[in-house]
Design a protein around this nucleic acid. Sequence first.
DNA 1: GATGAATGAGATTTCATTCAT
DNA 2: TATGAATGAAATCTCATTCAT
Lengths: 203, 203, 203, 203
Amino acid sequence: MAPRVTQEYKREVRERILSAAEKLFSSKGYYDTSMDEVVAESGLSKGTIYLYFRSKEDLFVGLQDRQLKESVTVLESAFAPGDSARTKLEKVIGTAFGSMVNASRRSCRISLEFNVAAPRMKSVQRRRDERFMALHGFLAEIIKEGVEKGEFRRDVDPNQTALILMAMADGLSLDWATTNLDFDWKTLTEQVKKMVMEGLPPR
Amino acid sequence: MAPRVTQEYKREVRERILSAAEKLFSSKGYYDTSMDEVVAESGLSKGTIYLYFRSKEDLFVGLQDRQLKESVTVLESAFAPGDSARTKLEKVIGTAFGSMVNASRRSCRISLEFNVAAPRMKSVQRRRDERFMALHGFLAEIIKEGVEKGEFRRDVDPNQTALILMAMADGLSLDWATTNLDFDWKTLTEQVKKMVMEGLPPR
Amino acid sequence: MAPRVTQEYKREVRERILSAAEKLFSSKGYYDTSMDEVVAESGLSKGTIYLYFRSKEDLFVGLQDRQLKESVTVLESAFAPGDSARTKLEKVIGTAFGSMVNASRRSCRISLEFNVAAPRMKSVQRRRDERFMALHGFLAEIIKEGVEKGEFRRDVDPNQTALILMAMADGLSLDWATTNLDFDWKTLTEQVKKMVMEGLPPR
Amino acid sequence: MAPRVTQEYKREVRERILSAAEKLFSSKGYYDTSMDEVVAESGLSKGTIYLYFRSKEDLFVGLQDRQLKESVTVLESAFAPGDSARTKLEKVIGTAFGSMVNASRRSCRISLEFNVAAPRMKSVQRRRDERFMALHGFLAEIIKEGVEKGEFRRDVDPNQTALILMAMADGLSLDWATTNLDFDWKTLTEQVKKMVMEGLPPR
DNA sequence: GATGAATGAGATTTCATTCAT
DNA sequence: TATGAATGAAATCTCATTCAT
């Protein structure tokens, strides 16, 4: 009995736990956060936490899932059907970096936690790899299209270049997360676009 | 009695401890490595470890110190006095990425450990920030020189661009460390140079 | 509203819970079985379980009750009015051990659980002791009769012998329950009868 | 360094832990005893307990080991080379039951704990089975010898009979451990011998 | 200086029981 | 009457650090 209401309610409780965990994991780190702290932050009881998540690691994975789901449609919905490869790439860069403006250091730090944990947590690794391959394929496809249409140089390697662009984003996120510097994401985006499209030297 | 011998011996013991810690921290992570494991890996006794390092964190910081010292002269010694800014930059990129070819995933992973720990360990943060600022200044200087000499476009922002280039390196290191993919650092370096110097589209 | 139906229904639910508990307690043991597992196995809800049994211990005692009730009339109904003491004893041995042929390791294991728990659960102890005394008295009476009628030796102590015979049964049950060996209860019964009636050496 | 002394000392500490555990496990049972109680009873610290035993189960197994070792030579050393099978058997019964006179309810209860735990703890099962088979073989051999020499009846099955005799001992131990009755082990031993050697009826 | 046994605070996890619906 | 989400005390186990030898 008590069907619809309960389902919705349970989702809320789950969300509450995840939010508490996100806050703590991102500021104190996964290992320096105890379940007791998650309990306190969430305002729930210890038993309840374990009712929703089998273990601390499971909670961590749940968090990764949530983050991946949230960001899933950001890039794909960015451009129009008729766009040139160049336009597509610029839009992608714009969206990716634009999302950083609103993104919190918190979410960058948490991403970093996932990355570092990945080699040591199977399920985290799997999710990370899937995400990585999907994004890489997405970018490589655009670049390949550009090369074929003559929009990009012949000797541009789509796979390598996709890798480099992803690394740029990952690296900026990493540097932002682990520094106290303020990044000016807007002009940063412009500089990236310029560099990628024209190179540093004048034409 | 002869101080020289004792000093040398002490340095060796220290090194042995650091090597054991590096191996373990890089493969299992800082938190998942216990001091008992460092003891076992080093072949020394627990008391001895604590004779050389006040705490686990101190050992971690010692490791960071060692890594920073090892890499400190790599970049600066790369170019000749009369080099143009462009040449300098290419050499820097070449050296930075070239060093990855020989570098182990291990050293990338441990750098990552330092990065993650940084926000929560003051002394790690300080060292990391110093290093970051030094490298950033070094790069920005080259780029600024290039802009002033007309080798690079007027609208290239030296600081932002230095940041971007560093992020590229950090990001590739991050992605390599947390994936099982094999990176072809040689062609990757070429692609980066091309992109930075010419952009993606044909001239 | 009709009370008959409700009573019957309640009995069924109770039985269902007891059966689930028996299955689990006998295979995993009392302590290694959680109420959640009883819930799952019974297909009922946790609330319902606690509606029928005040506590886990109460459920355990309920199980003991059920087992004792089931086995209560087995021995007494075995023999005819005119039987000699010897015949009675043989019949008792035959029935006791004969019942093992059909009995499951499960019921032996659960008896064992009761025995082990007894010293630490008053009500379990009381039931066990009552049962023990009843059986002991029953056996001792037969043996005493036999001694008085000259069917058994004068120096046979009815109480001690009753104890020994009970121990034999308990011991075989114990050994069977805690081993993986297959017991051939039929010839075992014969051997016991022979030994008890004739001793090992030839007459 | 510090070799001999340390070994002896460590053995003592180990023994101290085992004794504390034995006391508690036998009176409160394995599951109702917490490691905190073992800590308190032993007067050592929690860390020390886990320095000597990997887990609670390991401590349990260690206890079983100790008990088995203590009792290992009791039976085998009981009889002289020239003894007849009958004499041997009588001596074995005498020693086995005689040992109960001095044995504590405690050790019987602990044995029971081992037996009950056996089906659920591999290493306990293995040790128990080894012990069981050894004793069984030992007894069966004596009986077989007796049958072959004509000291026992032709239709006595050595294996089954050995099983029955062991069950008698196990059963008495079980009944003693789980009851509050006082057993008169001396006359009990006599009654057993008589029954086994002559049967209940007069010759 | 070198050792490694001892420590105990604190971590994660379980589970019998309750009670609002 | 029936439910099952919530609870929190208590269990097991870990591990950085100390200190007597």
